[in-house]
Design a protein around this nucleic acid. Structure first.
Lengths: 221, 221
DNA sequence: AAAAGTCGGTTGTATTTACAACAGAAAAGA
DNA sequence: TCTTTTCTGTTGTAAATACAACCGACTTTT
């Protein structure tokens, strides 16, 4: 467990908390570790979450597959990010999506019940943790709104432009690398891969952007 | 202000708190009231939120209009629901959407700073309030995930089926009334109104559902 | 090194959607 | 009541998208 503390120190949840404190908090939250290999499921749609998770290594996808096999990627979870904190509330029901490892991953499980209710005095950092949790879930909330803005774009081109300019902004450069391959990117934007590929090339021909493999560059108009 | 306390008592945020306590909390949170007439803006995209709001009367729409005049409705806020709680976090940036009154509305503004930081001892219910706020934002989070699931449907028909069956589930009946008109419904689902109208009629002709004005009935297959 | 599998681009066709325009019904306003 | 506006369904056409299928480049596996 100790090897993960240096990673945890850099997460938003445990930011500014000393290593010894983190160790005692992990204990208090019943932390356990589990490894997943690529393509393995962490949660499945319809399951009830008892723990929330914090990603120590690798990458996860929040995704959904419908009756007809259409895949949609809702979100990706990168190192240091969490999932399942929205299920701390009572009566929060089953989860609506699958959580699957996009790469070999190491996941910390923390007891979701304890984080809000236990030891308000025993853990001096507990209040701080709750606040950090609140901020994290707020941030995720705002990101969902942003993704909803993306998804409400009508055309493939508009979705691409929204997505790519969001990525450029996030990585603070007009040249950036994305972690999706084309199929995943299409699933993330909820469009057809070939149509998206077509549109990307058209935009390149029009001089709006350039790309090689997963590296994209956006040009000013 | 007093006339709204009976409404507040029924909100999730103040559930189970005595009226006198609510009054003192409102005071502590710098509550103020404002009225909006139909179509009036409450917030505009790009503004920074200093207060979060709680709707006492009427109905609000969270929406977005792009360069080309395309309107998208992200969410509706009904009586007793809140908006802006995700902006309690520092560095949460400007809001991404417009908030507009769909009907004549009465809005309570509460100080967003104080809710997390002030008077942990002075207000005995403060902890409870923070917890309720956390649950609310969690619930909203889960609703966003649901809406993202809706928006990731590829066809108008799939979106309609998702939306209508969600509504049926929410209202706990295969017959239900929606608050959107056709144009708003189309904006909510991010589809073309006439195409949606066309698809609705086709589904009715196929015997999947029936509707008169805003009342819909879904049939078993 | 050979074989198998993945990935990204391309093409053609059938289907779906967007857009504009219109008309009757209903609702709102004078 | 009469007028005006809003709402909903309908139609036709142009445009965009989905789907399937194929190929060459590249990776991974054996």
């Amino acid at each position: 467990m100790k090897k993960y503390i240096s990673i945890l120190k850099r997460t938003k949840l445990f930011a500014g908390i000393r290593e010894e404190e983190i160790a005692s908090m992990l204990n208090c939250l019943n932390a356990s570790v589990k490894n997943y290999s690529k393509k393995e499921y962490v949660f499945r749609q319809g399951e009830y979450i008892r723990d929330f998770l914090l990603l120590a290594e690798g990458r996860l996808m929040i995704q959904k597959e419908d009756y007809w096999g259409n895949l949609s990627i809702l979100n990706e979870i990168c190192v240091g990010e969490m999932f399942g904190e929205a299920y701390a509330a009572p009566d929060s029901g089953a989860i609506l999506n699958d959580v699957i490892a996009a790469e070999d991953s190491t996941v910390l499980f923390l007891d979701i019940e304890k984080i809000l209710s236990l030891c308000p005095s025993a853990c001096p950092y507990h209040t701080r943790l709750v606040k950090a949790l609140f901020y994290t879930i707020s941030e995720k909330n705002r990101k969902f709104v942003q993704k909803l803005g993306l998804m409400s774009q009508r055309t493939t081109r508009e979705k691409l432009l929204s997505y790519l300019s969001d990525e450029a902004k996030k990585q603070n450069s007009s040249s950036f690398i994305i972690s999706f391959n084309r199929q995943q990117m299409a699933d993330f934007l909820s469009v057809d891969r070939s149509a998206m590929s077509h549109e990307l090339c058209k935009m390149r021909d029009e001089g709006m952007l350039d790309f090689h493999k997963n590296e994209f560059t956006l040009f000013e108009e």
